[in-house]
Design a protein around this nucleic acid. Structure first.
Lengths: 188, 188
DNA sequence: TAATTTGTTTAAAATAATTTTAACGTTTCG
DNA sequence: CGAAACGTTAAAATTATTTTAAACAAATTA
């Protein structure tokens, strides 16, 4: 069956999908994911697993563009390669569980944040300690060094907490602490 | 006092600060904050409240650049205007509590994510329902509409949970659930 | 009130990023 | 094999963003 009313319905359906895809792209943009990568994810989310050529056709973009887009999404841990039996082409599948998306996406970034900053704090504090213990350094500079040391020292607590948050999410414990809703459903 | 050793010490001190400022900028970049805005925040974080001219001098950039940078950071709720008594110039102060930073920054984004997506889902589902109830629409299209409706319906739970998470953070309850102080969290 | 300072807006320039075309190396399959 | 298909890389082209200089408006002060 494929009359004019069916045609219209298909268009409406596509519009409905695009509405949500755009929203997903817009909100992913908030976290530094480019609009096109967000659109790509949204499309895969609603259309299921796709090949690069299917993406290209759907988004009207070049294949290398799809390739790099998919790669970026893989780096964020929200897209994976899959196999579609009988097909030669590689297919890619989007993480369809937003809780898993949240977990994969944010824990990766938070872990990196903690690691990078704790590392630089370590190095910086080492330098500051030297200054503080040095002779022939004005009290003014020493005081600045002491204050700076303390500010950095205080910030460590945050990064430690961040690591703890990450663990809570990775283990799924977060969903015990902040339940999904009345209907409990085991997650992860 | 200001001999050569003191000069060196000041340079070391600035280097130590810049090391951490760069890390802060790099990690803020993960969340879509531009490098220069991140550097600006990091500088204010370690140097205390500053005027636009002080920022300009410190970062070696133009004043309009500082103005827009500060404005962006204000939008993220991590910088505020302050007054420095006796001074005519406006000063700006960075949120120095990273927990508060985390709270201000992410809750704003998560709230927006939930709002924007729930809204588009509502509109999309309305369209999908029409298609499903329409006569003269092929079963194939209807089935797609039904499946899409269900995928969207399922995703609502996530956004509801996100709103719940936001509330837990805004009320500070999150720090009861995931306490700050725990011995060694040295994951690095 | 006139001159100065401050902060913002605007338009242009500079810079950065995304995207595409073209080319390359692999793999698949007849 | 050899041809075709696939995915990636490299470069060039295009777009978008960031930055600045210049102009402006508001506030201050002398």
């Amino acid at each position: 069956m494929s009359n004019s009313s069916d045609q219209e319905a298909r268009e409406s359906l596509d519009n409905a999908k695009e509405l949500v895809i755009d929203s997903i792209a817009e909100t992913m943009d908030l976290y530094g994911v480019t609009r096109s990568a967000g659109t790509l994810y949204g499309t895969m989310y609603l259309e299921g697993d796709m090949t690069l050529d299917e993406m290209r056709e759907k988004l009207g973009m070049s294949k290398p563009s799809m390739s790099t887009g998919v790669k970026k999404l893989q780096e964020f841990n929200v897209v994976k390669k899959t196999f579609r039996k009988g097909k030669r082409k590689q297919t890619y599948i989007a993480e369809k569980d937003f809780f898993q998306f949240f977990s994969n996406f944010f824990t990766q970034k938070w872990e990196r944040e903690a690691k990078v900053n704790l590392h630089s704090i370590k190095d910086a504090q080492s330098t500051l300690t030297q200054i503080i213990n040095e002779d022939n350094v004005s009290e003014e500079v020493k005081e600045d060094a002491r204050e700076t040391f303390q500010v950095m020292e205080n910030s460590k607590r945050y990064y430690q907490w961040l690591n703890k948050l990450v663990e809570t999410i990775e283990t799924g414990e977060i969903f015990d602490l902040i339940p999904l809703d009345s209907k409990d459903e085991d997650r992860q």
